[in-house]
């Protein structure tokens, strides 16, 4: 039996060493060849490749997050350096490791978490599988980026098509349903214990590093409702977190559901995102201590990117 334990441990140790070595190589490759990673992992690769200690706001969450806040608009309005690290259908395990990945190189002054992902619960076994796989992907990034050999073989384009995690989506598909969708109710949607567990870890990480964590909900008549709001509000109150639900502020934001969504009220298009971001820039600068980096030498790239964004936005607006 001793022989088995000894050899087993040795086998695992060598495996860990090999994986760690390959991971160093993979991370270096990914950081030096931007655009080499496609798909879901791209968000991880891009945030890792950001210049160290340049980001002040991290926006996390599922697709509701990166379709509602445009970092270039925040930059234009208040010079806030924000980054959208959301992924489509991001699971809470991914959010947790995304935050940890970002914090390896960044020291943000605020983490903004879009709350819709707190209701994603694919079941116990699926949750467990994701928990194991995400932990492995985080500790051994070579596994996350293992498909880069394909891009190396098939070719890739290093062109920047994102504005700090935000893409310009200018399609318009109107939402024609009830605009007064946040109906009065005492119903409370359940937040799974799995999500609760990861949320607590996210809260702890932010507290340990003195980073304020704020929950928010993007306007979405298809995705959001009062029962979800009640659950998040209760959760935020219980843990002393601020919560801003923009579904109650669509009038103030000036959201026009006829033209501000690209998929019939599920997500905002760039025009809706501009409105939400304009509001958020004011809200954040009033409530948090976020520096204005415009004109600083280290942020020259941001000014260039903001100009590109402006041009592209004007082009799509004029269509």
């Amino acid at each position: 039996m001793k022989k088995i334990v000894k050899r087993g441990i040795l086998f695992l140790l060598i495996l860990i060493l090999l994986l760690a070595g390959c991971s160093v190589w993979a991370e270096k490759t990914v950081n030096s060849k931007r655009g080499i990673v496609n798909g879901r992992s791209r968000a991880f690769a891009e945030i890792s490749a950001e210049k160290e200690n340049t980001l002040d706001v991290l926006v996390m969450g599922d697709s509701e997050s990166f379709t509602s806040i445009s970092p270039m608009e925040l930059w234009k309005q208040k010079g806030i350096a924000a980054y959208d690290c959301g992924q489509s259908g991001q699971k809470i395990q991914e959010t947790y490791y995304m935050l940890k990945t970002a914090l390896k190189t960044q020291t943000p002054k605020l983490v903004l978490l879009e709350a819709n992902l707190m209701f994603r619960n694919p079941g116990r076994i699926e949750n467990l599988q994701t928990a194991i796989s995400e932990a492995m992907l985080y500790h051994f990034p070579v596994l996350r980026y293992h498909n880069i050999w394909k891009t190396l073989l098939d070719g890739y384009s290093p062109d920047q098509d994102e504005y700090k995690g935000f893409r310009i989506r200018n399609d318009i598909k109107s939402y024609n349903g009830d605009e007064n969708y946040m109906k009065e109710t005492k119903d409370v949607r359940k937040i799974s214990t799995f999500v609760d567990g990861y949320m607590k870890q996210i809260i702890d990480i932010c507290r340990d590093r003195n980073i304020p964590l704020m929950l928010y909900s993007a306007p979405s008549p298809v995705n959001y409702n009062t029962a979800k709001h009640n659950a998040v509000q209760n959760y935020a109150d219980k843990h002393g977190l601020p919560y801003l639900d923009l579904n109650y502020k669509t009038k103030e934001l000036g959201i026009n559901w006829k033209e501000d969504s690209y998929d019939r009220g599920d997500h905002l298009n760039v025009f809706g995102a501009e409105k939400v971001t304009a509001y958020m820039s004011k809200y954040l600068s009033e409530n948090y201590d976020l520096p204005d980096h415009r004109g600083e030498e280290a942020y020259k790239e941001w000014d260039r990117l903001a100009e590109m964004y402006r041009q592209e936005f004007l082009a799509v607006k004029g269509k």
Binding site: L19, V37, N38, G39, R40, S41, R42, V142, L143, R144, H146, N147, W149
Partner: peptide, 9 residues
């Protein structure tokens, strides 16, 4: 680990 069809895509 490197060549299996898992992850992105």
């Amino acid at each position: 680990l490197f060549f299996a069809a898992y992850g992105d895509g």
